[in-house]
Simulated scan of single mutants.
Amino acid sequence: MTDTRVAVLVGSLRADSVNRKIAELLRDNAPAGVTLDLVEGLEQLPFYNQDIDTDAAPEVVTAVRERVATADRVLAVTPEYNGTMPAVLNNAIDWLSRPYGAGAIAGKPFGVVGATPTPYGGKWAHEDTVRSARIAGAVVIEDVTVSQPAVEVDPTTDPEARAKLLAALDTLVQGQPADAA
């Protein structure tokens, strides 16, 4: 597939976050014809509130929705906070899911990768992200999920970890959802 744009939702707000570094690594090593667009502004999204989700929704909401809606695929790159996905990512998915069935994320092939300094690498957060994205209407590509432990390994420099992450991106770009095959 060529000329593919992947919207990347980074679940960590910290500037020096390993997950932001993973997103940048994937962006900088994307296959030819693939552009990774790290969607900025997630920290500026107000908590989802149907009262303000109107035609006059906050400008940042409209901008984030537009960036995801115009992408071909969506990739969440996220750590795990207290056994689940970070609130900023959950809130972004809430905004992207509306209007239900026709939100910016609806019908988009979706994957999740990330690292956490635990032996499980963020597995619970990734499971929650997949579940939430699927309910929001995204089409989850199962073989994309990578939960990389970052206890003794820097996933941005370790050859094995990098290979898994880059393979996941390739699967997201090339793969078809199981129910679409």
Rank of each mutant, 00 (worst) to 15 (best):
M1W: 08
M1H: 11
M1S: 14
M1N: 11
R5V: 11
L9A: 04
G11L: 11
L13V: 13
L13T: 15
V18R: 13
V18Y: 15
N19S: 03
K21D: 14
K21S: 08
E24F: 10
L25I: 04
L26G: 11
L26H: 06
A32E: 15
T35L: 04
D37T: 13
D37W: 15
E40D: 15
G41I: 11
E43I: 00
Q44L: 14
P46K: 13
Y48L: 06
Y48T: 06
N49Q: 12
I52W: 15
I52P: 13
D53H: 07
A56K: 14
V61F: 01
V61R: 00
T62L: 06
T62S: 10
R65C: 15
R65D: 13
V68N: 07
T70P: 04
D72K: 03
R73L: 07
R73N: 12
V77F: 15
P79V: 01
E80L: 05
N82S: 11
N82R: 04
G83H: 10
G83N: 00
G83T: 02
T84M: 04
M85C: 02
M85Q: 10
A87K: 06
N90W: 01
N91P: 06
A92M: 06
I93W: 06
D94T: 00
W95K: 06
L96H: 04
L96V: 03
S97T: 09
P99Y: 09
G101C: 09
A102W: 04
G103A: 09
A104S: 14
A106G: 05
G107T: 14
P109L: 11
G111N: 10
G114L: 05
T116C: 03
P117G: 12
G121W: 03
G122R: 13
G122F: 05
A125I: 01
H126S: 09
H126L: 11
D128L: 10
D128I: 00
R131H: 12
R131N: 11
R131P: 00
A133G: 03
I135R: 02
I135N: 02
A136G: 01
V139I: 06
V139S: 05
S147E: 06
A150L: 01
P155D: 08
T157Y: 02
D158L: 06
P159E: 06
R162E: 00
A163D: 13
L165T: 09
A167I: 01
L169D: 11
L169S: 11
D170W: 08
D170N: 14
D170F: 01
L172F: 12
V173W: 12
G175H: 14
G175N: 13
Q176C: 04
A178G: 10
D179Y: 10
D179P: 10
